[in-house]
Design a protein around this nucleic acid. Structure first.
Lengths: 137, 137
DNA sequence: CCTGTTGTAACCATTATAGTTACAGGTGCA
DNA sequence: TGCACCTGTAACTATAATGGTTACAACAGG
């Protein structure tokens, strides 16, 4: 299982998108909703900020989305947090003296690339707005 | 990134499928190709055996596939090794007092389920035989 | 100036992973 | 029968990832 950063990132962005009073949006408040430590939130926000998804100002509460929820695909979020494109690790240095060992890495990469492509399509097809819509129902 | 067990499992099964002299197939030999420890191989083989994909006999060298490579989908292998169906962890106990916190888990599960379905289709579409064919080229 | 906030570095506890040692017990051959 | 070789499995270890935590410098605004 991959880590929970993608889940946390979506949670944070959803919270920012749905909170109209931006002054409420402190890392402490967000951490309370996510149920984690404020530093974990600030760390994640730093990453999302670097990717251009939101803005923040040192010393002052309030985060703002820089991309409309409708235009923010889950893929963009995934890439912002540098989610892995190779989902499965390939064991190091199989024996090149063996016919299978020599070619297995390349073959597995092809298999995993096809899986990643399928995943990517799913991530591309869903936006933060879709998530927000589901939250409301 | 998920662990390398899926990769190792495919490597092991490929090796068994392509080695005609079954008496060569000791955990030591396989470990040499995978480049790991024989115990790691025997452990993995134990899992694959439990899933009915191959047979082995205590004390005697030689493993045999119990399913034709053409009929052995990567999905079956994936399920044999108990690969995760939830690829992304969802953070525990978001705050139920918050509108987002209350619903986010359920929403994320839906998102991740759609991703898993897409992955599943890819895994279902490829067989061990496809892997073997790619190894030869 | 003081309070509350962000941004970061540093550190820690927990867990997963895979490698390793060790050994009991089966197999088959000299 | 004894030996060499194998499987199966338990137990332990080193390493790395993850997420939580403490600490603090710097900033903003009343």
């Amino acid at each position: 299982m991959v880590n929970s950063r993608f889940s946390v990132a979506i949670h944070i962005l959803s919270l920012i998108a749905t909170t109209s009073d931006k002054s409420l949006l402190t890392s402490d408040f967000i951490a309370g909703s996510v149920n984690t430590n404020p530093v974990v939130v600030r760390r994640m926000i730093g990453v999302l900020k670097k990717a251009g998804l939101l803005s923040s100002h040192s010393g002052v509460a309030g985060y703002e989305l820089l991309v409309e929820p409708k235009k923010l695909t889950l893929l963009a979020i995934y890439q912002a947090i540098d989610g892995p494109e190779q989902l499965f690790a390939i064991h190091d240095e199989p024996n090149p003296a063996c016919a299978v060992g020599r070619e297995i890495q390349h073959t597995l990469e092809d298999v995993y690339t096809s899986i990643w492509q399928a995943m990517k399509e799913q991530l591309q097809a869903q936006t933060l707005q879709d998530v927000l819509d589901q939250l409301r129902t």
